[in-house]
Design a protein around this nucleic acid. Structure first.
Length: 612
DNA sequence: TTAGGGTTAG
């Protein structure tokens, strides 16, 4: 299967080459154009004017400004400076172009300071300038400033347009503020003078997808079909990707067929999402089919498509095969990027081959500025998972030397490492440092800390932290309750565990299979086997069916409580449900057999429970 | 002729 996949990747890539040859002429033209402008641009950037440029726009300057391609923030500042010195200054559109390009490079604070320079020089903004500004403030997490730009519109007599409102909607959605986003959308519809366009709709569709509400996204798609703004490729891609991420690949494929029936052509993003979805489910054959299909439609796999394959292979433990895919990429002129190498590093770490991961890391360092915060977190995770926490900390300290800032995931990784290594004090120190550095702990941070405290028998500190979470009105999810209930059970505080468990529904939370199994384990540990069995029955009734782990837990509980015959009945039920005994249950059963504590009539059943 | 939406890694 894998060899077939490699052949397909190779086939896709050779198509890429011939396809490029086929497109030779336009490619040559555009390259030469780039060269011409690059020369002018270089000259423009590095010419040192002795005095401000006066008079007319020269023959050289105007086309250069028109075609400028900004690749670094430094260039943007140089160009901006030159433009501000020109008399008369270039039109605001030229300034907008630079701001837009810097924003695309994600240097949002640079955009703000460039705008301030414009403002000081008396270059008045237009609608486009202010729209870029709103977007930048949202990305910088400065929502207040974003909204204050709206005031600027009125001050300078400009009317916000559909892009302004869509940018605001997008900003609110990025900050998880669905209500405000929906408010703007509804207002747009109600007031009638600035109707949402297809981008506004697709932004909202993305918002639903981000919230995990695929059905609302699909409902909006259906609404679009009825109205004037018909759904386009971006809308379909957004939903297809979301369905794939939720492993609802069949639904994604149905939507994909629907899109094709409507004559909307798919692109590399559609296929990358679909291939990602099927790879996540281990459906390699389907991945190959899709890869073949895209190539047959002249849609060429790009670096993201290849990265999906590399990552999926790495997660399956097939790093060697992933390396082959990378070789194919290189052969076919698709340069592996940071994402590619990070996936490889993670693959090596998963196999415990930290040295090889370190080699990939060094390779990235040797190639220049390829290493990012994900690279560090990946390697830190590798060291932590293999109990090499001090080396992980060395890497963490090295990050700042590279100008990189550890994020919540980096801290979570290290906190987990400290917790699993039993170094709770170090974890707590790091937790304080994290907050002092302005990194916000998320639900996962708290789960990691609580888990560390519970597993290291520091239940009172865990309960104190839980209290702090409640006081801060943080979103406490079922995972956090599971950790606490388990901690209480292990500490023998079954009453408190039961209280938390019974109080879940009042908090609007539904216990899951894990919650119930933890509770069953705790009840058995406390000798309350009947209550445990009642809970098992209730699970079925409440539509939270016990799994193999639940059955193994309760069976072990009964054996430990010397209720062998009851355990045998449960083994019977487990076998009927298609589950089998795991290693620890098996050990207990073998032990019973060796002591002749099992009715010989039950031997066929036991054999079955072991062989499922 | 500039601004807003869709794909990959921890």
């Amino acid at each position: 299967m894998l060899k077939m996949m490699m052949r397909n990747i190779a086939a896709a890539s050779s198509f890429y080459c011939s396809s490029r040859r086929w497109r030779g002429m336009p490619c040559l033209l555009s390259n030469s154009t780039v060269v011409v402008f690059a020369n002018d641009y270089f000259a423009f950037l590095h010419s040192q004017p002795s005095k401000p440029i006066k008079s007319t726009r020269t023959q050289l300057e105007q086309p250069v400004i028109n075609s400028l391609k900004i690749t670094t923030v430094q260039d943007a500042f140089i160009v901006f400076d030159r433009m501000l010195q020109m008399r008369p200054p270039p039109s605001v559109v030229r300034f907008d172009q630079i701001l837009g390009q810097v924003a695309k490079l994600k240097h949002y604070s640079a955009v703000i300071s460039l705008y301030n320079q414009m403002d000081v020089s008396g270059i008045g903004p237009d609608v486009c300038t202010l729209n870029v500004l709103i977007n930048c403030y949202f990305h910088l997490d400065q929502m207040g400033f974003s909204l204050s730009v709206l005031g600027k519109f009125f001050k300078v007599g400009l009317e916000p347009n559909v892009i302004t409102f869509t940018t605001l909607i997008n900003g609110f959605l990025l900050k998880n503020r669905m209500a405000e986003a929906a408010g703007i959308f509804n207002k747009m519809i109600a007031e009638g003078n600035c109707q949402p366009d297809v981008v506004t709709f697709s932004t909202l569709v993305k918002g639903f997808c981000m919230k995990g509400n695929n059905s609302a996204a699909i409902q909006l798609l259906r609404k679009m079909e009825e109205g004037a703004r018909k759904p386009n490729l971006v809308v379909y891609n957004t939903i297809i990707d979301s369905l794939c991420k939720d492993t609802l690949v069949d639904d994604a494929l149905n939507l994909f067929s629907e899109m094709m029936c409507k004559g909307i052509a798919s692109d590399v993003i559609t296929y990358t999402s679909l291939i990602h979805g099927v790879c996540k489910l281990g459906k390699w054959k389907e991945a190959i089919r899709l890869l073949n299909e895209m190539v047959s439609k002249n849609i060429l796999p790009d670096v993201c498509t290849f990265n999906v394959l590399v990552d999926a292979l790495c997660k399956e433990g097939m790093v060697g095969e992933a390396e082959v895919v990378v070789e194919v990429m290189v052969q076919r002129d698709i340069e592996p990027n940071t994402v590619t190498y990070n996936s490889l590093m993670d693959g090596y770490c998963l196999r415990g081959e930290i040295g090889k991961a370190q080699n990939v890391f060094e390779l990235m360092l040797s190639k220049g500025s390829m290493v990012n915060v994900v690279s560090y977190s990946t390697l830190i995770n590798g060291y932590c998972k293999h109990k090499r926490i001090d080396e992980a900390m060395m890497l963490f300290l090295d990050m700042s030397h590279k100008g990189l800032v550890a994020d919540t995931i980096t801290y979570n990784t290290l906190l987990d490492g400290f917790g699993k290594a039993g170094r709770i004090q170090d974890a707590q120190k790091l937790f304080s440092k994290m907050q002092a550095c302005g990194q916000h702990p998320n639900a996962q941070t708290y789960s990691i800390l609580l888990d560390g405290l519970c597993k290291n028998r520091q239940l009172s500190r865990a309960m104190q932290l839980f209290g702090e979470m409640e006081a801060k009105k943080l979103d406490i999810n079922i995972v956090i309750y599971n950790i606490l209930i388990e901690g209480l059970c292990i500490a023998g505080k079954i009453e408190s565990a039961r209280d938390l468990f019974c109080g879940l529904s009042s908090k609007g939370l539904q216990p899951n299979v894990r919650t119930c199994t933890i509770m069953i384990s705790g009840l058995c540990f406390a000798g309350l086997t009947s209550e445990a069995e009642n809970l098992l029955i209730q699970m079925e009734e409440k539509g939270c069916s016990p799994d193999g782990w639940t059955f193994n837990t309760i069976i072990r509980g009964f054996i430990h409580n010397k209720q062998t015959s009851r355990a045998m009945v449960l083994i019977q039920t487990m076998v009927e449900k298609g589950f089998s005994a795991d290693a620890s249950t098996m050990l207990l059963i073998v032990n019973l057999l060796s002591k002749d504590e099992v009715d010989p009539a039950l031997l066929p059943l036991i054999k079955k429970s072991l062989s499922n």
